[in-house]
């Protein structure tokens, strides 16, 4: 699939999709979206990039092994639960805080951290499967 049009478009597509995936992830709490969907979008972005430029390129860009990203996501999700335990409420209870940063009120919460964990698990797992299938003997 190394056609000129595809190879030219792929970087923009990938960048846009990644940005979009983060947007979807963050808006998920109030509008359609969330970690699962965001993760799938990001995984497709990496898959497209892989088809256009080869697996090695994607792996180099990602720097971490996709499975490690997945593991870090699971770690974040558990951490989100443990924060509640440390705060003295049952595991995974949602905690919220709304600090004002630069005149802007930002809602931060453990469910958000948890959702980021979900996002990373999905990105990591699907990407590593896709890359392993795309790659030939060289990976």
């Amino acid at each position: 699939m190394r056609t000129l049009i595809f190879r030219t478009a792929a970087p923009y597509l990938t960048a846009l999709m990644l940005l979009f995936s983060i947007f979807v992830l963050l808006r998920g709490h109030n509008e359609p979206g969330g970690g699962f969907i965001g993760g799938l979008i990001a995984a497709s972005a990496f898959a497209i990039h892989g088809i256009a430029f080869g697996v090695r390129q994607v792996r180099k860009t990602l720097h971490f092994h996709p499975m490690a990203i997945s593991g870090f996501g699971l770690f974040l999700a558990v951490l989100a639960g443990l924060v509640s335990v440390i705060a003295g409420v049952p595991f995974l209870t949602g905690l919220w805080t709304s600090p004002t940063i630069g005149g802007l009120t930002v809602d931060l919460s453990t469910p958000m951290l948890f959702d980021i964990g979900v996002y990373l698990v999905v990105v990591g797992s699907i990407t590593s499967i896709a890359l392993a299938l795309e790659g030939r003997e060289d990976d």
């Binding site: 998920g28 709490h29 109030n30 509008e31 469910p111 948890f114 979900v118």
Partner: peptide, 12 residues
């Protein structure tokens, strides 16, 4: 604190 019920169920 979420309007998207589906996602609130999933993460909370």
């Amino acid at each position: 604190h979420g309007r998207n019920i589906v996602n609130v169920i999933i993460v909370d």
